[in-house]
């Protein structure tokens, strides 16, 4: 150990520089947007800062220039939550089902994964055509939800497979051996042991839906989701309010992730308290 740390080769510095560039590229733009969103009331879209204020956040809520931002935000949030719940439940049972290697499991798996590869905009076009054909009206809570699920379900399924890889089937057998009925095995053993993985799947379901754009464009119908609304803003809004909305949406994403971590921590604490109670 001590020898390797005394002399670092050229490779170390090259890789460190590469990593540095990567971090800069990842967080630099976000940081710029974050700073510029606090631009003073007379400031513009670029540096320098003309004072520091929360003027543009305020402008976002009060001005009518930006269309239905609040509504779009609410719709995206709700859509994300619906996609999250459906993804978590469906992926759990689908992955459990795939363990049985039933007849046709291979083709069904590939069919469900293909929708990750199909260009989103084409898929959206297809869905909107289908709805027209069936005489249904496009709506964010129906056609867009379906479009989002075509993206979140295969993703969640792949994560669930990885989670199940570390799941030992003999836990379920031990539960059955102790006399547990199928629903008791699921509720007392399978789901509790898989729970951290399920939270990860749910998290992916939400964030993938929350900032999904290509699949939403042609499927939301009359009312836009937030990413489409922001995309529209970039072409016709020339004030730092654009940055303010960027900061707000990023904050929501981070908040959701933080909530998930808190949820995991609380569950673990409850488990250790349940342990302590038997004292």
């Amino acid at each position: 150990m001590s020898q390797s740390s005394t002399r670092r080769g050229m490779g170390f510095y090259l890789l460190a520089a590469f990593f540095g560039l990567f971090v800069l590229f990842l967080y630099g733009p976000m940081l710029m947007i974050f700073i510029l969103s606090f631009q003073g009331p007379t400031g513009g879209l670029t540096f320098p800062m003309r004072g520091v204020s929360t003027h543009w956040f305020n402008d976002l809520w009060t001005s009518s220039r930006y269309g239905d931002l609040g509504g779009a935000f609410r719709r995206s949030l709700l859509l994300g939550v619906m996609a999250m719940a459906i993804t978590a439940v469906v992926c759990l049972f689908a992955a459990l089902g795939f363990r049985r290697r039933f007849w046709g499991a291979g083709p069904i798996f590939y069919l469900s994964i293909i929708s990750l590869i199909v260009p989103g905009i084409l898929l959206g076009l297809g869905i909107s055509q289908l709805f027209q054909l069936l005489g249904l009206r496009l709506a964010w809570w129906l056609s867009a939800l379906g479009a989002h699920l075509s993206w979140t379900l295969p993703f969640g399924l792949l994560i669930m497979f990885a989670v199940l890889n570390r799941f030992d089937g003999s836990w379920e057998e031990a539960a059955r051996d102790a006399g547990a009925r199928p629903w008791q095995v699921l509720g007392l053993v399978t789901v509790p042991i898989l729970f951290p993985g399920l939270i990860a799947v749910a998290l992916f379901g939400f964030t993938l839906s929350y900032d999904e754009m290509p699949r939403s464009l042609l499927t939301v119908g009359g009312r836009n989701t937030l990413p489409i609304e922001i995309s529209n803003m970039t072409t016709n809004v020339t004030t730092p309010a654009l940055y303010a909305i960027g900061t707000v949406t990023s904050a929501v994403s981070f908040l959701v992730i933080a909530l998930a971590f808190v949820a995991i921590a609380v569950i673990q604490k409850q488990r250790s308290r349940a342990r302590g109670r038997t004292e």
């Binding site: 030992d168 003999s170 836990w171 057998e173 031990a174 539960a175 051996d177 102790a178 053993v189 509790p192 042991i193 488990r271 349940a274 342990r275 038997t278």
Partner: peptide, 14 residues
């Protein structure tokens, strides 16, 4: 009652 080769104790329970 079966005792499993790898014991199969439930990891989430005391």
């Amino acid at each position: 009652a079966l005792m499993f080769q790898n014991y199969a104790l439930f990891p989430h329970l005391s």
